[in-house]
Design a binder for these strands. Structure first.
Lengths: 210, 210
DNA sequence: GTCTATATCCCGATAGAC
DNA sequence: GTCTATCGGGATATAGAC
């Protein structure tokens, strides 16, 4: 058979193998400690081999980010489609958002790694778009003006993201239980935001400030 | 002579100078590109000099983080004390949280740098505590059960953090205006969460708070 | 106790041979 | 496409000057 040798990726799929091993390594030591050199070592190739497939370390991380968004989106879709009511669907987005952060920490970390200049990798933005659209379409289904929808979408996204960060930061403890606690909190925060959403769009300048 | 040379930091305050220059460098190139070597070069000392004051790069970054929390807390307190009503005070915490992220990006970035293992630097947690307490005391002033307060505190913190990340990520645009937009959104989201807070504490499904 | 000088090792990146 | 060789830079440890 054409089963490739797992120990030595000298068979032409180094690119995919690099992305795969990068995810593993990031899981083990975090993005910051990820190095092309170690990835190469694990794959049994020399340190310069990756440069045939990626411009450099950052480009590989960008590819990892794109992959992460794809997996992220798949998770969100799977979860959202279990519900029909718009509010529940939106809460499901928030829930799966946090779950993804908890169950794929390396990938989630890679998504927001300050070390990758996203503006130089437009494919990252393209990979993110379906996710944003999922948010938006759920929010739109709730009705209300365009401005109100936008405000709610931003608030929910921020809430989901915030819970995800708190989770990854350990504020909810460790393990699978912590993930569910955080995910459930995010879902409920979403429902609370929907409930109080009129307050998101009021005043236009009159909520106090400088 | 006991007169220290100001230009070379050979005067015994290298520790403070390192923290200061670290903040500058992180502002210029981001945490990832910060190096002890360059900090040393800028201060006119050799690369090994910092090791008299810090165990290594990570320890210096930890010190920067502590400093960041101190400044962060000072900002929050200043802003919160301009209000009296509990809801407004809580919204002010969220607002100043986001403002800090926008106006001190380097420090904010350092606060959540995945490269520093916070569990190995307990002083970071200690520096963070006053900030958490500020959140908590504002929430408690709103009344409600202990569990409900906890739930609201977490939700507001997550919302504030989420808006801050979206801001730093450029989702609100650039410049001072973007900062205010994000800060105001966070404040309003806080008010919306207060409004819908009953939904945060329902079902008893998996929400275990401590 | 603080800093210099030095040396080792790892990593990112490039050029050229196979 | 991959390897060899190599350069430059950064992290870190140690020995010694003041």
């Amino acid at each position: 058979m054409s089963r490739p040798s797992k120990s030595r990726y000298h068979h032409g799929d180094l690119r995919a193998a690099l992305i795969e091993i990068a995810v593993e390594l990031i899981d083990e030591r975090g993005v910051r400690h990820f190095s092309l050199a170690e990835a190469s070592r694990r794959l049994g190739v020399t340190v310069s081999a990756p440069y045939s497939h990626f411009a450099g370390r950052e480009a590989l991380l960008a590819a990892v980010t794109v992959r992460a968004y794809e997996l992220f989106y798949a998770d969100v879709v799977r979860e959202v489609d279990r519900f029909r009511k718009p509010a529940d669907r939106l809460a499901a987005v928030a829930r799966s958002y946090v779950r993804f952060a908890g169950t794929h920490r390396a990938l989630f970390e890679a998504l927001f790694d300050p070390g990758v200049d996203k503006s130089r990798y437009p494919e990252i933005d393209a990979a993110k778009r379906p996710l944003d659209d999922a948010f938006t379409s759920c929010v739109d289904a709730l009705g209300g003006s365009e401005a109100a929808s936008k405000n709610l979408a931003v608030a929910v996204e921020a809430a989901a993201h915030g819970h995800a960060i708190l989770l990854v930061d350990g504020d909810f403890g460790d393990g699978a239980e912590a993930v569910e606690v955080a995910a459930e909190r995010a879902a409920r925060a979403t429902l609370a935001l929907i409930e109080g959403r009129d307050l998101l769009t009021r005043g236009r300048g009159r909520t106090r400030s400088t």
